[in-house]
Design a protein around this nucleic acid. Structure first.
Lengths: 207, 207
DNA sequence: TGATTTTTCCCTCTTTAGGGGGATTTCATA
DNA sequence: TATGAAATCCCCCTAAAGAGGGAAAAATCA
């Protein structure tokens, strides 16, 4: 019997997952959470084998950070990441941190099932697209803390001057951070950086 | 008995909606579609009272355009728009075009149910946030066709020169379109336009 | 038809972005 | 301790973006 915990901020998604998985005799839903904070708060009190975890969650913490914390505990449950869009960098980061699966939300239900069962067995399951992308030996793209902060504001539409002002550094420094972000991500200008960051969930979108 | 048609590109969402609505005696699911094209293709052959329609759909056509076409037909079904983020402009546009409801995906299921039942009765149902926003008498922000096309490419990270090239117009023309987009949306630069467009679902995000 | 909007293009001018090439300090780590 | 990454700042220079002010043809609408 696989005990499965569901984490997604949308009611309909949780309900859909629950009704689907409950139709299989070997799976039992051990609980649900809508946010990363709720998950971390509740997970200590339940015994579960697998957590199906959405990446983009409202509030301060995203799914990856929640995964990191849970996997840092002794004898943690397996985690399968559920995501709307396939992002190579995030998938790599997730795998490095010990996640057991990475599947797209628009995958057919059988894929989700396969991923959960594989995770329960300690196997790793990746969907086709992710596997293809990963297998191309993509070097991990890692932004420094400062670069992430700059990217965050970049994606908010701020100018270099505004970023400089809120980070209390000079405009020149911001420019050098932006340049290294572009070079690390293989992009050509800030517009592409904004587009990339928002489309691939590299930043929160609190609009 | 309310016949309800479901349109969403995610399996889990469709499944969740179906299992939820089927638990009510007065509702019957008359069909499902994953894209706007599929909906338009299939809807002629089924009798349905209400269509629950996701706004962001893969492929060329979005939910609003599909709604426009369906509502243009004689004696059309009622349409309830389902959306991930509340966008005032889109909500206004949807209502103007005769849609019967506008609800967020993360609403509690009871809200969805209320919206569908209201639509079946010919009433209009808006969720709280949308109502609040609408009631502030927001003047409709309407981009021309050309401006939408430019915004689409803008959000993809393209430069003015690239946009000019694909639209087969001069760079100067692109600049004037960009300027009018900024002025209509009340923004200051293209970075803000990209951020705004992606965060508020003004463009598709096919990454 | 007349009026309005859309789409197109041009010019000038200022600001912003971004590359290239340094340099310094701090801090972790091999 | 040496090495390297991170973070800070500077200069010079080119290209891109955007404001302001027109203008004119085409499409749409009243």
């Amino acid at each position: 019997m696989i005990r499965l915990y569901l984490v997604d901020d949308h009611h309909v998604v949780r309900r859909g997952l629950r009704s689907y998985f409950e139709s299989f005799a070997d799976i039992k839903i051990s609980g649900e959470a809508a946010t990363a904070e709720e998950l971390l708060h509740k997970i200590g009190e339940v015994q579960t084998d697998v957590i199906l975890l959405d990446i983009l969650l409202p509030g301060g913490m995203d799914g990856l950070e929640a995964a990191r914390r849970i996997l840092g505990q002794p004898n943690p449950p397996r985690i399968v990441i559920l995501t709307a869009y396939t992002d190579p960098a995030r998938a790599m980061a997730a795998l490095r941190m010990g996640v057991q699966g990475y599947v797209r939300k628009d995958s057919p239900p059988e894929i989700l099932l396969a991923a959960v069962r594989a995770a329960a067995n300690g196997q790793i399951y990746l969907d086709k697209q992710t596997t293809e992308i990963i297998s191309e030996e993509i070097p991990e793209i890692k932004l420094s803390l400062r670069e992430q902060q700059v990217l965050e504001q970049l994606a908010g539409g701020d100018t270099n001057r505004e970023i400089a002002s809120t980070l209390m550094i000079s405009e020149e420094t911001v420019k050098s951070h932006v340049s290294s972000i572009l070079s690390k991500l293989g992009l050509e200008n800030r517009s592409q950086a904004i587009s990339h960051a928002l489309k691939n969930g590299l930043v929160r979108r609190d609009s």
